[in-house]
């Protein structure tokens, strides 16, 4: 049973100018002088309410930095809400940052296994899928090579093939992925369509406003961490278009 519920969800976090604090600075500065590395509070999501049932296809739109990807990561369980309630029921699979997280020293086959384990597979189920993943990636003998010798394109091919070899109940997608060369892109788009059709529930972040109404039945327009509008996809997209267009004319 796939279900997503966000109730009054807020997400705030502190960032610092410098990446981290040093222990000796922390001890010395706390005692003797004000910090030269002040923290900043980021209110990334404000009072988000969302309820999705089986069959829903939600598109998230908005300008850069509006909190689109943050919502997705919150739904995936990577960020925890600072306040409010989050309920996500169903097996989640997320397609974002997929090119990250490879073990350079290990070869393609090994990487297929352990990335699949992370997606909740078991050795038995991986053994059954390995061949299909390898075939889809079209990497052939390169799979016997450590992945640190792979080109960026090959890496993405492998990542995409692994990440889409599952049948998710809840599918979270960030942007339309541009993967590999032209031939592979077409194949990847086909695979994405299949996956989206199979998923019980889908949330997708995209800037492709034309494709959005075909993929989604509902949409959320995010603005500075808040929901500006929510409703049927076509309406929200139209409202967003109007506002962006208005800005362009005013400028």
């Amino acid at each position: 049973m796939a279900r997503i519920e966000l109730e009054q969800v807020n997400l705030t976090f502190h960032v610092r100018q410098e990446r981290g604090v040093r222990l000796k600075d922390f001890i010395l500065k706390r005692l003797f002088m004000p910090s030269r590395n002040p923290g900043m509070k980021v209110h990334a999501l404000r009072d988000i309410n969302l309820r999705l049932e089986r069959g829903d296809r939600l598109g998230i739109i908005g300008h850069n930095g509006a909190g689109k990807s943050t919502i997705l990561k919150l739904l995936a369980g990577i960020y925890q809400p600072s306040s409010g309630r989050r309920v996500v029921e169903g097996r989640v699979s997320s397609l974002f940052d997929i090119a990250l997280g490879f073990e350079g020293e290990a070869n393609g086959w090994e990487n297929i296994s352990f990335r699949s384990y992370l997606q909740g597979e078991t050795p038995t189920s991986v053994r059954a899928k390995k061949q299909a993943i390898a075939e889809f990636s079209e990497l052939g003998d390169f799979l016997n090579m450590p992945v640190r010798f792979y080109s960026a394109g090959m890496m993405v091919r492998l990542a995409f093939s692994i990440a889409t070899a599952i049948e998710p109940e809840i599918l979270l997608v960030d942007e339309v992925l541009s993967v590999g060369d032209l031939a592979f892109q077409n194949k990847a788009r086909e695979r994405m369509r299949e996956m989206m059709a199979k998923a019980h529930l889908m949330v997708v972040v995209s800037h492709d406003l034309d494709a959005m109404p075909q993929m989604c039945n509902r949409a959320v327009w995010m603005d500075h961490g808040q929901v500006r509008a929510m409703g049927p996809c076509a309406e929200v997209v139209a409202a967003y278009r109007a506002s962006v267009g208005g800005h362009a004319i005013a400028a």
């Binding site: 990577i78 974002f96 940052d97 997280g101 992370l118 997606q119």
Partner: peptide, 9 residues
């Protein structure tokens, strides 16, 4: 880090 950013393990 790269796993932490992708999966909620």
């Amino acid at each position: 880090e790269s796993y932490i950013r992708q999966f909620p393990a």
